[in-house]
Design a protein around this nucleic acid. Structure first.
Lengths: 344, 344
DNA sequence: TGTTAGCACTCAACACCCTTGAGTGCTAAC
DNA sequence: GTTAGCACTCAAGGGTGTTGAGTGCTAACA
């Protein structure tokens, strides 16, 4: 369905206005804007048409009008003017990233907090997911005369403290045996049979206490197969700033939803859009999000790993600014993480 | 100042009532409770006395009375009846802990979420702080033909990916050199001179690229000296359940405060009470906490490490239940972590 | 002397009503 | 096709009166 140029302008004006005020927009408010020289009566007629077409909604007679989900969708697809993130902000961002370059998870968390401070909405961010996980090395380090740390290196590094009175030599022997049989193992290779076979071979080779060996192996196999991704939320409390969540009950439900990582994981995983994209209101599956929009972007590290950043806010969010901010941030993350994983 | 037995009972009744209802408590409500057989007029006289003594406050004439900070303090010190955590809850808790025994930080996070679900208040929890950090081992693991992971084992394990095209052999040589000069190093030993000395020695011994060596050493030294403790908050949104935070602005400020880890760290670090203890209302330094109480308990691992759990809620919190819950949880953490670090 | 009953007074909360103003739809004039 | 005018609607805001919980004080009672 095609809209006349005038209708497009009016729809855009209504949505821009509503994004700013969160109040139903009346015809007079639009006619007073300087870019359209039309009387309020004319605007009224056009707005009535837009309502018939499904782009606007009148909450009750004699109130102004607010955008429908379809209205927002049309706005995001066709009307929205691209916002430009200021150069100062970008430089600020680059500096901030560079200062935090020590730990990957910190960069990710920090990116989330930047996204939320640029947009002033809550942000959900996932740490880079591993692609296939391959075992590089197992190491055993005596910590005291009672304890030993097991270190497993795949794409990431995990460790576990167990109770064993092992000498340096014993650690070396066991580590050597473990590496001999396990190096190069991927999550696909881990089966019950494989676990039993490795266990038997090492047992006959090292003559170590059976239970200790079982515990070490359990941890190693768990580490290879486990791939839960970390997920962070920042700036949750921004929700309270928006009149949509003036009602404390509603806000509370939203908080509970966002505090539950399973919900977030499902939310972000089920997202299969590409590039920057928005899910507006009822386009979200969760009932609780029907008044919200979720704008999501992927970032990638080039090497088969990547994650997502989502900004979540009221449907009446500043899409233009959110799109621009996420675009910039994901670009900078790409840069910094490529640098980090290649030269860091 | 000594209170008559009757005054104590009345004060206790007022506070118990107020904790439940959050409404100013009138004399009639107290006289109707079955444990005291006194008319409302008598109660009125006693309550007027308690107000003169500073234990109660009347928000305005002809309203009921609410406890003052001193009233709560007296209640916590002398009146409160000890709540008993149900055996089923304890067993539930033990089971839950046992299922999560794989990772220390997960246990800690989980303990926080249990504390908040038992008490229904927000919980702040710090991961075990390290005592003195001593370097046990450094390891280098090639990840691809461009990247190598550096693994540093102290009491904990940290890793870092850097860009180096090193073979297994080269990794071994460098690792051996690093271990030779660095093993046993504690945070006290790290000085600029020491760093330079180690760097020079390894340089002449291995003839490795200077920049690469510098990067590895920087990471190793950082890991030894760095001791920022992780800190988690759970169940923040419970704040919205309490009428004290019906006002969205107030709730928003509280959220911002609790989302800032620096605030939390300062809050928990500045706490120097022993055992389970409460900071009530104005006993807290932060202005924003003057309407809150903070109940804190330490847990320890026996081996010089430990952390804290704090429950934060309205002054009108169920102190009895919070004290009992924290007591139970810290006891269970002690047990499970001792088990974990000794036998895990 | 301590306790109780009764009474007048205070004050926040609530319902109710009226007014106001923003906004609409419709119609007639331009 | 656009504008001006008019009657209508409805939410929000500002009094006003009522209600009910609670108090302090006083007098009577055990």
């Amino acid at each position: 369905m095609d809209l006349s140029d005038r209708k497009r302008k009016i729809l855009q004006a209504v949505i821009d206005e509503y994004i700013g005020t969160a109040e139903p927009v009346g015809s007079r408010a639009i006619s007073k804007r300087d870019n359209l020289n039309l009387s309020s009566a004319t605007i009224r007629n056009e707005m009535a048409d837009l309502e018939d077409m499904g782009y606007l909604i009148q909450p009750h007679t004699s109130a102004g009008r607010i955008p429908s989900d379809e209205g927002y969708r049309f706005y995001v697809n066709s009307l929205m003017e691209r916002y430009q993130v200021g150069m100062e902000a970008i430089i600020e961002l680059q500096k901030a990233f560079q200062m935090r370059i020590t730990r990957l998870d910190q960069i990710i968390k920090y990116a989330g907090s930047i996204a939320s401070s640029l947009t002033d909405y809550a942000t959900i961010i996932t740490a880079p997911q591993r692609g296939e996980s391959m075992l590089r090395k197992v190491d055993l380090v005596p910590i005291s005369n009672e304890k030993t740390t097991v270190v497993v290196v795949t794409e990431t590094v995990r460790s576990h403290v167990i109770n064993m009175a092992l000498s340096d030599d014993e650690c070396n022997i066991l580590a050597t045996a473990l590496n001999k049989y396990l190096k190069g193992l991927t999550s696909k290779d881990v089966t019950i049979d494989k676990m039993r076979e490795v266990s038997d071979r090492i047992k006959e080779r090292t003559k170590l206490d059976e239970e200790v060996l079982a515990r070490v192996l359990k941890f190693v196999f768990e580490t290879i197969t486990d791939d839960d991704t970390e997920i962070y939320v920042s700036n949750m409390q921004s929700i309270l700033k928006y009149p949509e969540y003036r009602d404390v009950n509603k806000a509370g439900k939203m908080f509970s939803f966002l505090e539950n990582k399973d919900n977030l994981r499902r939310l972000i995983m089920s997202d299969n859009g590409e590039g920057i994209h928005a899910k507006i209101g009822s386009e979200n599956e969760d009932e609780i999000l029907k008044d919200c929009s979720l704008v999501t972007v992927d970032y990638s590290l080039g090497d088969n790993r990547g994650g997502k950043i989502s900004v979540i806010g009221p449907k009446r969010m500043n899409y233009s600014k959110v799109f621009a901010s996420l675009d910039t941030i994901s670009g900078e993350i790409d840069k910094i993480l490529r640098y980090y994983t290649n030269n860091g």
